[in-house]
Amino acid sequence: MRNPIPLVLATCLGLSGPAVANDGFGGLSSTGLTFGQTDAIAMVEEDLFIGLDAVRVDYLFRNITGSDITGEIIFPLPPIHVGGLMLSDWNLPDDLLGENLVGFTATVDGAPVRVSVDRQAVIEPPWEERGPASAAYDAPGRDVTADLQRLGVPLTVEPTVAVAALKAMPSATRARIAAEGLAEFYPSAENPDEIYPAWSIVLRYHWTQTFPAGADLRISHSYDHLPPGGIFVWQDPPKDDYLRQIADRYCVDASTSRGIARRLAGGSSGDGYFTGMAWNIDYVLRTANSWAGPIGRFRLTLDKGSERNIISLCATGIEKTGPTTFVIDKRDFVPDRDLQILIVSPLEN
């Protein structure tokens, strides 16, 4: 029997050379706001909404000290591999030249705030050398921002712009760039200028915020959700090692497994496998542990997008509140793991 590989986690980060495109598309994980470790500011409430197209978060913070506290509020995106964008489809906007890639907006006590965006270029370490998922949001790897700026290469995620800058370099500079691991060159008779940038771009949205002494402050932000996904293959029960790994990662129990098979029945290959589409949503919750104490009240609303979609994640206390929505409500919540959500859709959707 053949052993299909579901392309539900397809990204092209860390690729070391040319590769063919596949049926998966890359995308972006998400994280909460960071402020640095503090014992002065408590997260009283977090109301988080995650849908296929949007993420919205409302926070209520409280300064539990007698002094004003000022610092930088940061919302980081995970690294975006510029060369990887050339090798596979990505769930990103058509225009990659815009400053605000995900349409991020924020308000403080209902009033819009001016959010700055900075960019850092990094050479990420191999997958096997990377730390836990939440650590990946702190610009992992070697910082090559100054190197690219010295060479006149724009800090953009648009690969055509980066490649054009590299093509304009003299051959001696290209050789030095290759030796430093900044890019890979694959000249051939057909394409003497085949170039793959090796760096990733980290975008950070941030602003300076003062938390008044002893007072509450409500901060809200929203942005376009651009998760990865692709063609999804399932069997019930999952017997292949890779499918069992998916079941473990997203806590796909026997009932959910049967539900996925029934929902994808129209995509049956006739040999026990079922084909559909899937999105893989990661949201880093453990950044909340950098604030003082537990989250007083945590409310998560999930929207699977369509009544025909199947959702699965590792969580307790999930209540269905509508045709496509589910809610988790917790008190004095200390996140000990990040959210990993699987949404499966029939091909006809």
Rank of each mutant, 00 (worst) to 15 (best):
250 Y>H: 14
250 Y>P: 05
250 Y>R: 05
253 D>V: 09
253 D>Y: 08
254 A>E: 15
254 A>D: 15
255 S>M: 02
255 S>V: 07
255 S>Y: 04
256 T>K: 09
257 S>W: 09
257 S>V: 06
258 R>L: 12
258 R>P: 04
258 R>Y: 06
259 G>A: 14
259 G>W: 02
260 I>N: 12
261 A>S: 15
261 A>H: 15
261 A>K: 15
262 R>W: 10
262 R>D: 11
262 R>T: 12
262 R>E: 15
263 R>T: 15
263 R>Y: 11
263 R>Q: 15
263 R>H: 13
264 L>A: 02
266 G>K: 13
266 G>W: 04
267 G>V: 05
267 G>W: 04
267 G>S: 01
267 G>A: 01
268 S>I: 02
268 S>M: 04
268 S>Y: 04
269 S>F: 06
270 G>R: 12
272 G>S: 09
273 Y>E: 06
273 Y>C: 01
273 Y>K: 08
273 Y>N: 11
274 F>S: 09
274 F>L: 10
275 T>A: 13
275 T>H: 13
275 T>C: 11
275 T>D: 06
275 T>V: 14
276 G>H: 02
277 M>A: 02
277 M>K: 00
277 M>H: 00
278 A>G: 02
278 A>W: 00
279 W>A: 03
279 W>S: 07
279 W>F: 05
279 W>Y: 05
279 W>I: 03
280 N>M: 01
281 I>P: 01
281 I>M: 01
281 I>R: 00
281 I>Q: 01
281 I>V: 06
282 D>K: 07
282 D>T: 11
282 D>I: 06
283 Y>Q: 03
283 Y>C: 02
284 V>F: 03
284 V>G: 00
284 V>K: 00
284 V>T: 01
284 V>R: 00
285 L>C: 02
286 R>N: 06
286 R>S: 10
287 T>E: 15
287 T>Q: 14
289 N>D: 09
289 N>R: 04
290 S>H: 07
290 S>I: 08
291 W>E: 11
292 A>V: 06
292 A>H: 12
292 A>R: 09
292 A>I: 04
293 G>V: 09
293 G>F: 10
294 P>T: 04
294 P>H: 01
294 P>W: 01
296 G>A: 10
296 G>H: 09
297 R>T: 14
297 R>Q: 15
297 R>N: 12
298 F>K: 10
299 R>F: 04
299 R>L: 12
299 R>E: 13
299 R>H: 08
299 R>M: 12
300 L>D: 03
300 L>F: 05
301 T>Q: 07
